[in-house]
Design a protein around this nucleic acid. Structure first.
Length: 140
RNA sequence: UGAGUCAGCCAGAUAAUCGCUGCUUUAUCGUUGUACUUUCGGGUAUACGGGUAAAGGGGAGGAAAGUCCGGGCUCCACAGGGCAGGGUGCCAGCUAACGGCUGGGGGGCGCAAGCCUACGACAAGUGCAGCAGAGAGGAGACCGCCAACUUCGGUUGGUAAGGGUGAAAGGGUGCGGUAAGAGCGCACCGGGCCACUGGUAACAGUUGGUUGCAAGGUAAACUCCACCCGGAGCAAGACCAAAUAGGGUUCCUUAUGGUGUGGCCCACAUCGGAACCGGGUAGGUUGCUUGAGCUUAAGAGUGAUUUUAAGCCUAGACGAAUGAUUAUCCACGACAGAACCCGGCUUAUAGGCUGUCUCAGAAA
RNA sequence: CGGCGUUUAGCGCAGCUUGGUAGCGCACUUGGUUUGGGUCCAAGGGGUCGCAGGUUCAAAUCCUGCAACGCCGA
């Protein structure tokens, strides 16, 4: 039987924990989330949440996202190595259903874990990336 | 039955699995204090705090929201009084207090039940009223009406009934009266003042007397009057307390020393250890939930509220718990998440339920 | 969580104290100057005064409620 508990040792507790990760982290992102991560010296992963009031206006929605993120992390943490993760959100997250949030987060855990492997090198950007950005700006 | 009105209640339910949090009980681990014992290694007992595990029971709201008022609590300031500044504003009461609530009065809306109402004073003083209009406040003659004069164009005087302007034009209707008019006179209506009566009062009156009616609006304009208000806020405040941060005192040691400034001497600055002492950053603990508390019954009061008795303990987190998934059911689930605590107000809200009263219709 | 401020034309700001006409600069349009452009000169257009109520004859301005944006306090 796997251990699915989620005690305080699995969380980032103080501002100094967070500031360590903000300094040159590995990244993984999609339309609604940004994950930052770094390896730690412990034998388990840890999770920290930053749900900005600017991004999600209502307290009920902020609580919902935090609970779902913790729940999903709890169920998937045995698949992760010893890394510290900070989850940040972007605009529009509060419009997603619980089901969509679970699906997106499960993908992102795997992605960020991969990128924290010691030998990992980021893929080169596709050539048309710069182009797309320019056309987007021009259309605005 | 329909339409409305007021008051109150509920805020998906059940089950399974996996979690979070603090409480109680039990077990266990190591540590600290105390006592006993000792072969000085330790051992035993007990207490409180701590870690781990198991079991049990608890775990967001009617608005937890906005932060618009009021109070508790904490720190700071403070002899007393006044000014300034801010707030409130019909009367009486309730309350810890209030800008809240209850009851009553005046005014407005509604057929009604009922709802709304910053509602003191402009006769203490000052100010404001653009444009229009003759005139905007103890007024006024533009047109009109009347009289006199007239060169027949008008001029002078009287006049507030009519027209016109404006948001607002100095009681209303009728009769008398007059050159034409006018509270000029009279009747009725309305208003002012003084009594009387009722009411604690605001205020009211088929009451009596008196007054031709006189200086109208605006105080969410300055102001006056009455009453109230010290400032900050739990990120308040209190306690413990790392650093290889740093301050003071004493003692020891060094020193004819090292380093820096300088060409050099001189000179100046700085450099060690121990003990004690406060101040205090990171961090931790506390404040932190038993309270103007809730429920029931009886009593007082029209009511807000209050008295007495009995019973109950009902979130207390701190990167911040109160959840996720699945299944079944139905009315298919709105607004929305405690952060020191209470009393209000305001704003958001799917629907559902209960009762009061009113109006309309039908039947008896 | 607590404390405080701002909202007026496309942009940046006056006007609010003491209520009646919303103004300034840049930008925009048109014309002139120039061979042409810029500069310069002249004229012009453009504003639900954040939203909703109230007071008033009349509200950007006074009062009340709401919203958005921003600042401060570990």
């Amino acid at each position: 039987m796997e251990d699915f508990r989620f005690g305080r040792e699995l969380r980032l507790l103080t501002p100094s924990h967070y500031s360590r990760i903000f300094n040159e982290p590995a990244r993984a992102a999609n339309q609604h989330f940004t994950l930052l991560a770094k390896r730690n010296d412990l034998d388990h992963p840890r999770l920290g949440l930053t749900i900005a009031k600017k991004r999600v206006k209502k307290a009920v929605q902020r609580n919902r996202i935090k609970r779902l993120a913790r729940e999903n992390f709890r169920l998937n943490r045995h698949k992760l190595d010893n890394i510290d993760i900070v989850l940040m959100v972007k605009n529009g997250v509060d419009e997603l259903s619980n089901e969509e949030l679970h699906a997106q987060l499960t993908k992102l855990w795997r992605k960020i874990n991969e990128r924290c492997q010691p030998g990992y090198k980021p893929k080169p950007r596709p050539n048309n990336w710069q182009k797309n950005k320019n056309t987007k700006k021009a259309s605005n």
